[in-house]
Design a protein around this nucleic acid. Structure first.
Lengths: 153, 153
DNA sequence: TCTGAAACGCACTGCCC
DNA sequence: GGGCAGTGCGTTTCAGA
């Protein structure tokens, strides 16, 4: 719960890149034995530094290679409408990220689909059917320059 | 390399949520024994369906709770300038995502910092020092509604 | 491609420093 | 808080169907 020392930070840095590394190998990298590594990791989990362990998939391989950014503004901005948009957007499987923003645009969405056809269907049959949408602007990714879950510290 | 069957898809769905699940438990969920699970996972890795295994950290805990979206347009658009922007942006530790876009805006960036002070410093001393930036617009996330690495299929 | 069994190594515990 | 030794379990391999 207290501050992390340099060893904890190194462990987190490693786990962000390769969560399957054995405590044995990590121990040799950090000039320690496996036991303290093991205990520190359990502590980092317990204290909430580590949310979960996941496999990252290759978008191309699973036919989700098109990424779109969509900016949405609502027509009315009272609490009920915002919460309603919130709960409806969570049901859409194509949406990877959705942020409620400060400023002129209300929401940023990152959407992954197989192609433009599917994006068209997504907007037509799902997104645009959500109540109270005012403006809806779509942008397409030409090239992913960076896309990482890793924080540098 | 061929098409995936329903078992492969189920394995990928599980690993996207919890990559530390044992082959034993997965086997019992899928009514199989650990060996075929093990072999299928190795094959999914070898064939490039699985990029890597990572720990996802809690932004708040590691002091990166402010998320900004930044839209950048370049002044000149010849190949050299785009590649240069590309290589310079990759050096910035605060940037989590960077996409080269089709349309009026050239790049979308997702940036995580500890607070507005740090964002100010990031723009002042790093982002704005990159050559050839024309327009630079920042938006701040009020609330994360969704942020997942998981693809639904 | 799966089952079942066998071998191996690592995760995990407890004790000592 | 780290080192060391022991145990059990999961990973990994392989023969057979």
């Amino acid at each position: 719960m207290e501050r992390l020392d340099e060893i904890d930070l190194k462990i987190l840095r490693i786990l962000q890149r390769d969560s399957n590394m054995s405590t044995k190998k990590m121990a040799s990298l950090l000039n320690l034995t496996p036991s303290p590594i093991y205990e520190r990791i359990r502590k980092l989990e317990k204290d909430g530094y580590i949310k979960n362990y996941v496999a990252l998939l290759n978008k191309k391989r699973i036919n989700r290679s098109v990424t779109a950014i969509c900016m949405v503004s609502l027509r009315y901005h009272n609490e009920g409408f915002i919460d309603k948009f919130d709960s409806q957007i969570k049901k859409l499987n194509e949406v990877q990220e959705c942020f409620h923003m400060a400023g002129k645009v209300d929401f940023f969405l990152k959407i992954n689909v197989s192609g433009l056809d599917e994006y068209h269907e997504f907007v037509r049959t799902k997104l645009s059917r959500i109540d109270n949408i005012g403006v809806l602007e779509s942008y397409f990714v030409l090239k992913e320059i960076m896309d990482t879950t890793e924080f540098h510290f």
